[in-house]
Structures are given as C-alpha cells and as structure tokens.
Design a binder for these strands. Structure first.
Lengths: 234, 234
DNA sequence: CGGCTACTTGAAGGGGTTCAAGCACTGTGG
DNA sequence: CCACAGTGCTTGAACCCCTTCAAGTAGCCG
C-alpha cells in the first residue's frame, strides 16, 4: 500500500505536517484535490463558508471588491499556505487563482472535527494565523505610509522570498529569474495603486538598474540592497 | 472567600470567559493588574516577547514606526481584547495606552502552559485571532482604496461600535455623546493621513450636519446613515 | 500576419501633503 | 477670577505624487 499523502509536495510544510500517520490517514480521506485555472475562483465574498484547504501549488489571492467596483487584494497564498476560516458562517473574501493552481480541499465541518480531535492541528493553525495577522499589519504600514516605489519594492521582495521558500524556482541570489505570479493589474490591486503607476515605477527600477525584466512576467533582482533601501524609504 | 476574578469587569467577555473555576483560580494566580497612564507604553517593537495580557479598561494602540519616523497605528485595543503573540520570540509592535488604561498581565511562558492545559483557551484565542485578521484586512481595503472622508467615517463608526460593545458610555443611538479615545494626531496615525487632513474632514462632516463635536474629544453622530454612506463611498 | 490583451508612455488634473499661521481649549499661578 | 502659557486643533495657500484620461506599443496566440 502506498503511504498516505505520500505524493503531497507540501506534506511536511503544510498544516498537516504535524499529524501522525493515523491522523494523516483520516485527513487524506477527507481531502479532495482540485486544480484551478488561472483566474478561476474558489469562493466569493458572502458565500456560505463550507470549505478549508491547503495550497499545493500555484499562487492565489484573497481580495475584496469596494462598492464602487475596484478591487483590493488583501493577501497572497502560496504553496503550503492554509485557506479558510474555521468557525465562521460566511466567507469574507474572494479567493482566486492567479496562476494555474492546485488545492487540497476539506469540507469545513469534518475539518473542524479533526481540529477538535488533533489539538496540534489547532495549535498549528493558531501560529499560522498569528503570523498572517502580523503580515497583514505590516502591509497596513505600507499602504498607510509608504510611497508607490517603496510599496512596489516591498512586493517584489516579498514575492522573491515566498517563491524561494516554496521552491518555485526563485532564489535569493542576484540575477535569478523570477516568474511573477501577478499581472500589472493584480500588482496594482495588492499595492493600492493604479496599473499605470505600477508600470512607471517598474520602469524607474529598470532605469536605475535595480531590476531587469524579461517578457511580461520575468524579473531579475540585480541590486537587492538598493531594492531593500527603496522599500525602507518613505 | 471572595470569588476569583470576581471584580473583573471583562471576566465573561475576555479570553478567560470560557475557563472553569479551577482554571480561573490558576489564571488569577498568574495575572497581575497594571494601570497605564495615557501615553504610557506596555512594550516596544523589538523587545523580547515576555508578556500577554487582557485589556480591562481604556483604549490602547498597536503601532509601528517607519524608518523615517512617522507612525502607523495598525490596531486599536478595547476592554476584553487580548494583547500578545504567544509562541513568538520578539514583539512586532509598540503597544501604548491612548487613554488611562488597565491591563491584566500574564508572563508569556506560564500563559502558554495554561493554553496547553486548557484547550478552550487556545480555541478562543484562535477565533479571536481569526477575527482580528479579518478586521486588519478590512482596514487594508480602506488604506488601499478609500478617500480620506471614507476612512474617517469608517473610523468613527468603528469607534462608536466598539465603545458601545464595551459599555464605555457610547451607544448606537443618534446624538449620543462619544468621548473619542484618540487625539487628531492619533486618528491620523490610524488612517494613514496627516493631522491637517483629519481636521479638515471632520470640519466637512460638521458642516454637512453629519456629526457634531463637543470640545476636543466629544463627538455626536447626528446622521448615522449619511456617515455610513460616506464610509462606503470611494 | 492579424488581432487581442497586457503593458507602456504622455499630459492634465486632483486629493492629500507640506509649510505656515492663527485659534481655542486646559491647566497653572498670580 | 483672570492672565498666560502650552499644547492641540483649525485654517490657508502652494506644491507634489499619484490618478485619470488618452494614445501608442509589445508580447503572444490563433
């Protein structure tokens, strides 16, 4: 018999990583893999909250729409990240795949049962949620106080770090090619800017030799220190 | 013998609310009350993370300083709110009393022990953290996409709601006098604006008859629906 | 190649900041 | 009780960063 979740690429980095074999077997019975095309949504704001999931591959976004129609992305989800909000009745944000993606879905009720029975699962989720809260608060500082160039630099650095962590081909090394998981529009939605401003700021970073671009999605960080300095500036 | 934590004003609304008498007795041995003067800080960003606490009274802020020196408030803490980040080594934000305040402090290590032994405590904290994450993400949308007037309206409505919940004298009724826990400068730090803009926007709301002010801290909401409409606008 | 979408670039306009006074609460001492 | 700081708040005017509106260009797929 093949070992449970044996082929799961995020098995030891995801929420499930702490489970023993018995619990993992149970989880594997509850989980169901689903592939998402780029642009496809897993759920919409206001939906009944019926699912939790682990991200297996790809990048997704958490976003809200203002009444007047423009979007704000409030979080990005990478492989091994957890999706969902246990104990809530409705869903607070849209979740949409930015790239082709794959998730491992659990119905919320049985997932909550598993959490009750495996307290290390709850503990793990608590730690992750606290981290996520911290991430979100750091973005608050960016959106509240920083200029367009500092925000962009921050996003690029964040993407680079997350891509490196999740082994998506990027690396902290200078000049490594990163495939951006976001279009310019999607970057603007994260940064609270317009697509034109994002484009212009990328242009400035290129002119300054801080980054280089390759096609629409390709990006190289040529001067990490300079990029970090821009992020830390106003 | 007097009952444990009997005189605690937030006993049933705080994290401790779910504990049975035995656990509460244990908690009461670990907790230590401390009063804070307005402006006094409980901890600073970068400090060793040694404490958790419940807010008993007053209002506190969570804030960060940008390298260039101006502040961004990333969260407000009201009575019954929880302070601290279990499992982390260092502290991510300054915590400062905005008004005279009182907190019930626990050393982090024994608090974590209590969480391990009383899983409903961990569960409670998880739910609170998930809510707080949600609050923080909603603010992201405000800072990313909304105008100064919408942000201010949002803050006033939030304060009104929180003050009503915590029984600090406010009420959702029209014309009730609210004592703002923040100065204009502190409001600006929450909203990602300057003090001048905050002042001007308050002036506009007054001119429109949406609110009335009384001294520096006093505020009445005269047209809640109009205020809400402004919050929901761009 | 043609067509589509994503992206870039330009110019004008506006919301918020910045800089600079002036005003009004609040407490303190005479 | 009133003068008088002192701090917090308001108001005004110029400026600037980002947006808005409008073309124009480049990557990509049939």
């Amino acid at each position: 018999m093949t070992k449970v979740c044996e082929d799961c690429v995020v098995r030891d980095r995801s929420l499930c990583g702490t489970l023993d074999d018995a619990a993992l077997t149970e989880m594997s019975r509850l989980g169901r893999r689903r592939k998402l095309a780029a642009g496809e949504s897993l759920q919409f704001e206001g939906d009944d909250n019926i699912l939790c999931a682990n991200v297996l591959g790809g990048v997704l976004k958490l976003s809200s729409l203002t009444p007047s129609g423009d979007a704000q992305t409030v979080g990005l989800l990478y492989p091994a990240d957890f999706i969902g909000r246990p104990y809530a009745d409705t869903v607070d944000h849209d979740i949409t795949a930015l790239t082709e993606a794959e998730v491992c879905i659990f119905a919320r009720a049985p997932f909550e049962r598993m959490m009750a029975e495996n307290i290390q699962l709850e503990r793990q989720l608590l730690e992750r949620t606290l981290s996520e809260l911290e991430r979100s608060r750091r973005w608050l500082l960016f959106l509240g106080r920083k200029s367009a160039s500092a925000r962009l630099a921050g996003l690029i650095i964040d993407i680079d770090r997350r891509m490196a962590q999740t082994g998506c081909g990027a690396d902290l090394g200078i000049g490594q090619l990163i495939q951006l998981p976001l279009t310019r529009t999607e970057m603007a939605d994260v940064l609270g800017l317009t697509i034109e401003t994002v484009s212009r700021e990328i242009g400035k970073l290129k002119d300054a030799g801080v980054i280089a671009t390759e096609g629409r999605r390709g990006l190289r960080i040529l001067k990490p220190a300079a990029l970090k300095a821009i992020m830390d500036s106003e």
